[in-house]
Protein backbone atom coordinates (compact mmCIF):
# COMPACT_ATOMS: atom_id res chain seq x y z
CA UNK A 1 0.00 0.00 0.00
CA UNK A 2 1.06 3.54 -0.53
CA UNK A 3 2.71 4.87 2.61
CA UNK A 4 1.69 8.28 3.80
CA UNK A 5 2.95 11.14 5.93
CA UNK A 6 1.02 13.87 7.70
CA UNK A 7 2.25 17.37 6.87
CA UNK A 8 1.44 20.83 8.11
CA UNK A 9 2.79 23.75 6.11
CA UNK A 10 2.01 27.23 4.86
CA UNK A 11 1.39 27.68 1.17
CA UNK A 12 0.95 31.19 -0.21
CA UNK A 13 0.03 32.39 3.24
CA UNK A 14 -2.55 29.69 3.84
CA UNK A 15 -2.05 26.96 6.42
CA UNK A 16 -2.39 23.52 4.87
CA UNK A 17 -2.61 20.19 6.65
CA UNK A 18 -2.63 17.04 4.55
CA UNK A 19 -1.81 13.39 4.49
CA UNK A 20 0.39 12.73 1.49
CA UNK A 21 2.12 9.69 0.01
CA UNK A 22 5.72 9.57 1.25
CA UNK A 23 6.96 9.55 -2.31
CA UNK A 24 4.96 12.54 -3.47
CA UNK A 25 7.21 15.39 -4.47
CA UNK A 26 6.43 18.97 -3.57
CA UNK A 27 5.51 20.18 -7.02
CA UNK A 28 3.11 17.30 -7.63
CA UNK A 29 1.53 18.02 -4.24
CA UNK A 30 1.07 21.68 -5.06
CA UNK A 31 -0.30 20.96 -8.52
CA UNK A 32 -2.43 17.92 -7.96
CA UNK A 33 -3.54 18.24 -4.35
CA UNK A 34 -3.77 22.01 -3.99
CA UNK A 35 -4.59 22.88 -7.60
CA UNK A 36 -1.71 25.32 -7.80
CA UNK A 37 -0.91 24.47 -11.40
CA UNK A 38 1.28 27.51 -11.94
CA UNK A 39 4.37 25.52 -11.00
CA UNK A 40 5.28 23.33 -13.94
CA UNK A 41 6.88 19.94 -14.30
CA UNK A 42 9.45 19.74 -17.05
CA UNK A 43 11.90 16.95 -16.34
CA UNK A 44 11.35 15.55 -12.84
CA UNK A 45 15.07 15.19 -12.37
CA UNK A 46 16.06 18.64 -11.27
CA UNK A 47 17.64 19.96 -14.44
CA UNK A 48 15.15 22.07 -16.34
CA UNK A 49 14.12 24.47 -13.58
CA UNK A 50 10.43 24.67 -14.60
CA UNK A 51 9.33 23.67 -11.09
CA UNK A 52 11.51 26.24 -9.30
CA UNK A 53 9.56 27.78 -6.43
CA UNK A 54 10.25 29.41 -3.11
CA UNK A 55 10.52 27.49 0.18
CA UNK A 56 11.39 29.38 3.34
CA UNK A 57 12.50 32.31 1.25
CA UNK A 58 14.89 30.54 -1.10
CA UNK A 59 14.46 29.08 -4.56
CA UNK A 60 14.31 25.29 -4.74
CA UNK A 61 13.45 22.65 -7.29
CA UNK A 62 9.93 21.45 -6.53
CA UNK A 63 10.67 18.08 -8.09
CA UNK A 64 13.70 17.44 -5.87
CA UNK A 65 11.93 17.97 -2.60
CA UNK A 66 9.34 15.68 -1.10
CA UNK A 67 6.09 17.12 0.09
CA UNK A 68 6.98 15.41 3.37
CA UNK A 69 10.15 17.48 3.60
CA UNK A 70 8.09 20.64 3.35
CA UNK A 71 6.45 19.91 6.69
CA UNK A 72 6.68 23.09 8.73
CA UNK A 73 7.88 25.12 5.75
CA UNK A 74 6.55 28.25 4.12
CA UNK A 75 6.03 27.69 0.41
CA UNK A 76 5.35 30.41 -2.13
CA UNK A 77 4.36 29.56 -5.68
CA UNK A 78 3.94 31.86 -8.65
CA UNK A 79 0.31 32.28 -7.69
CA UNK A 80 1.35 33.48 -4.26
CA UNK A 81 4.02 35.79 -5.63
CA UNK A 82 1.43 37.34 -7.90
CA UNK A 83 -1.37 37.60 -5.36
CA UNK A 84 0.92 39.05 -2.72
CA UNK A 85 2.49 41.51 -5.14
CA UNK A 86 5.98 40.14 -4.51
CA UNK A 87 7.01 40.02 -8.16
CA UNK A 88 5.03 42.85 -9.75
CA UNK A 89 8.04 44.71 -11.12
CA UNK A 90 9.55 41.60 -12.68
CA UNK A 91 6.25 40.54 -14.18
CA UNK A 92 5.81 43.97 -15.74
CA UNK A 93 9.32 43.87 -17.13
CA UNK A 94 8.83 40.37 -18.53
CA UNK A 95 5.67 41.57 -20.29
CA UNK A 96 7.31 44.70 -21.65
CA UNK A 97 10.31 42.77 -22.99
CA UNK A 98 8.31 39.75 -24.14
CA UNK A 99 10.58 37.65 -21.94
CA UNK A 100 8.34 34.67 -22.36
CA UNK A 101 6.82 32.83 -25.24
CA UNK A 102 5.05 29.57 -24.43
CA UNK A 103 5.14 30.46 -20.75
CA UNK A 104 5.98 27.00 -19.50
CA UNK A 105 9.37 27.96 -18.07
CA UNK A 106 8.06 31.31 -16.89
CA UNK A 107 6.98 30.59 -13.29
CA UNK A 108 10.32 28.89 -12.59
CA UNK A 109 12.25 31.58 -14.43
CA UNK A 110 10.43 34.20 -12.41
CA UNK A 111 11.28 32.47 -9.15
CA UNK A 112 14.95 32.34 -10.11
CA UNK A 113 14.94 35.94 -11.28
CA UNK A 114 13.26 37.08 -8.11
CA UNK A 115 15.86 35.30 -6.00
CA UNK A 116 18.55 37.13 -7.95
CA UNK A 117 16.92 40.52 -7.63
CA UNK A 118 16.10 40.06 -3.95
CA UNK A 119 19.66 39.00 -3.22
CA UNK A 120 20.86 42.34 -4.53
CA UNK A 121 22.06 41.03 -7.86
CA UNK A 122 23.58 43.60 -10.19
CA UNK A 123 22.59 44.41 -13.74
CA UNK A 124 25.72 42.68 -15.05
CA UNK A 125 24.43 40.66 -17.97
CA UNK A 126 26.87 37.81 -17.55
CA UNK A 127 25.98 37.48 -13.89
CA UNK A 128 22.30 37.40 -14.78
CA UNK A 129 22.91 34.81 -17.46
CA UNK A 130 24.88 32.67 -15.03
CA UNK A 131 22.18 32.95 -12.41
CA UNK A 132 19.35 31.85 -14.69
CA UNK A 133 21.44 29.16 -16.36
CA UNK A 134 19.55 26.52 -14.39
CA UNK A 135 16.28 27.47 -16.04
CA UNK A 136 15.75 26.00 -19.48
CA UNK A 137 13.81 28.08 -21.98
CA UNK A 138 13.38 26.65 -25.45
CA UNK A 139 11.54 29.62 -26.88
CA UNK A 140 13.12 32.98 -26.16
CA UNK A 141 16.84 32.53 -26.62
CA UNK A 142 17.12 34.10 -23.13
CA UNK A 143 18.06 37.61 -24.22
CA UNK A 144 14.67 39.12 -23.43
CA UNK A 145 14.75 37.48 -20.01
CA UNK A 146 18.13 39.05 -19.34
CA UNK A 147 16.80 42.43 -20.48
CA UNK A 148 13.75 42.14 -18.24
CA UNK A 149 15.84 41.35 -15.18
CA UNK A 150 18.23 44.19 -16.05
CA UNK A 151 15.32 46.59 -16.41
CA UNK A 152 13.90 45.57 -13.06
CA UNK A 153 17.19 46.13 -11.28
CA UNK A 154 17.82 49.46 -12.96
CA UNK A 155 14.34 50.73 -12.24
CA UNK A 156 14.54 49.72 -8.59
CA UNK A 157 17.71 51.78 -8.35
CA UNK A 158 16.15 54.97 -9.69
Amino acid sequence: MTRTVAIDLTVNGERITASVPSRLNLVDFLRNDLGLTGSHVGCEHGVCGACTLTVDGVAVRGCLMLAAQANGCTVTTVEGLSDQGLSTALQAAFTKRNALQCGFCTPGMLASALAYVNAGGTDDRDAIRAHISGNYCRCTGYQAVVEAICDTIKEART
Binding site: G38, T77, E79, S82, F94, T95, N98, G103, F104, T106
Partner: peptide, 10 residues
Protein backbone atom coordinates in the same frame (compact mmCIF):
# COMPACT_ATOMS: atom_id res chain seq x y z
CA UNK B 1 -1.76 36.89 -22.54
CA UNK B 2 1.67 37.52 -21.02
CA UNK B 3 0.21 38.57 -17.69
CA UNK B 4 -1.80 35.37 -17.44
CA UNK B 5 1.23 33.20 -18.09
CA UNK B 6 3.37 35.27 -15.73
CA UNK B 7 0.90 34.80 -12.91
CA UNK B 8 0.77 31.04 -13.24
CA UNK B 9 -2.68 31.11 -14.79
CA UNK B 10 -1.73 29.19 -17.91
Amino acid sequence: DAARLLQGRG
